[in-house]
Amino acid sequence: MLFLENGGGKSVLLKLIFSVMLPGHRNTLGGASSGVLRKFLLADDCGHVALEWQHVLTGECVVVGKVSEWRGRQVSNDPRKFAEAWYSFRPGPGLSLDNLPVAESTAVRAPVEGQSGARGRRRTMKGFRDALMEAGKTYPHLEVHWEEIHDRWIEHLGDLGLDPELFRYQREMNADEGEAAGLFAVKKDADFTDLLLRAVTDTRDTDGLADLVSGFGNKLGRRAELIAERDFTAGSVDLLGRIVEAAEARSRARDIHAGAERRTRTLARRLSARGVQERARAADLARRGRPPPRMPSPTPRRPASAAR
């Protein structure tokens, strides 16, 4: 958060940050009369904006920056003659924020923390790019990246973990150099809808939003039909579920019946075989001989007294 009086440079600082983190957006603060970034450079200048970010948990750092100059070394009102490029690297041995190769020599004096040691003739954009890429080849751990297209640079920022959308909200809140609460000061539903659409919609792809709204409108118009179709589908699923359960119960009953039938047939075959064996044993015993006949029992004698 910056606390400075009017004219202290708050808008300029934000404009420089947005030129790196929001390329291709309108980076003018305080109205159109404030001018644009290209008015800061003279014909022979090569402008540099560099930002160093540090991860709050891991402590890992990354440097992102922007280089600008006038094509042909001539100031023009044609924005197409204003060349811009962006770069990133991981600071470490060989290259850091304090020794960017903005000049041909950076070893004239001992480095001082927070100050650039660059001395000598200033490099052009091409010279700076060549020096940066050469450092990347010599020190692969720097992971040097160079980009000249807005969309690709925004994608690269996302790959680095830097979300440009966060800075878009900052630009919206500081558009009139007022309080941040002014961004959310809506008076009617239409204002809130506009705010929401700006927050979630890419202004470069309005056709996609139109297709989305059209598709939603078509679905809303078919709401009654879709509800009836949903109810029919839900009822069909319920009935089909019951049919599936009945089919599974029938299949289980068939399996049980088939198992009982197999066991019954097996038992019948075993009983039939046992009957054959028993009949054979009985016939064998009959051939071996009959049992001896029973002897008649003797007649008991009567007592003599009884005979008389």
Results as ranks from 00 to 15, higher is better:
V112Y: 06
D45N: 03
A50W: 04
Q170E: 14
P79D: 11
R262S: 03
T233A: 08
R122E: 02
R262Q: 06
R274Y: 11
L142N: 01
G275C: 12
A258C: 09
P296W: 09
H145L: 11
L41A: 13
R290N: 02
S305K: 06
G35S: 07
I243T: 04
R80F: 06
D189C: 11
Q277M: 11
A234L: 01
G289I: 02
G221V: 00
E278A: 14
L14W: 04
E248K: 11
A307F: 10
R109T: 15
D163M: 00
N99T: 12
A253L: 04
P79S: 11
F82I: 05
R230P: 00
A180C: 08
A307H: 11
G65Y: 09
E229V: 10
R290W: 02
G178V: 07
D189T: 11
T203N: 05
G235T: 09
L183Y: 01
A103Q: 14
D202C: 10
P140G: 03
R90C: 15
R302W: 14
P164N: 01
R265V: 12
S88P: 09
T264P: 00
W53S: 11
H145D: 10
A107V: 09
E143T: 08
D284K: 15
A304C: 01
G289A: 03
A260V: 13
D211I: 07
G8A: 03
G275Q: 14
F40G: 02
L162K: 03
A228S: 15
Y139W: 09
V276F: 02
E60G: 13
W86T: 07
G158T: 02
E179Q: 04
D238G: 11
A228Q: 12
V213Y: 10
G178W: 03
R123M: 03
L220M: 08
D163P: 00
G178Y: 04
R152E: 15
R274P: 00
A273W: 08
R308S: 12
N174T: 12
R281T: 13
V64C: 14
A83Y: 05
P140I: 05
G35A: 04
C61F: 07
T106S: 12
L14C: 02
L29M: 13
G161C: 09
D44R: 10
E104C: 12
R222G: 08
A282T: 09
A286S: 12
G59W: 06
G7H: 07
G127S: 01
F167W: 13
T264S: 07
L209V: 03
V12W: 06
G241C: 07
S305F: 09
E225S: 10
R80I: 07
V64D: 06
M133W: 03
P101A: 06
L37M: 05
D130F: 10
D45F: 00
D191W: 03
R290I: 04
A181P: 00
F40M: 05
R222H: 04
N77I: 03
S19Y: 02
V56S: 14
S34I: 04
R279F: 00
I149H: 15
K188C: 15
D151L: 12
L95G: 03
T203F: 02
E165M: 09
A210H: 08
T138W: 01
V67D: 07
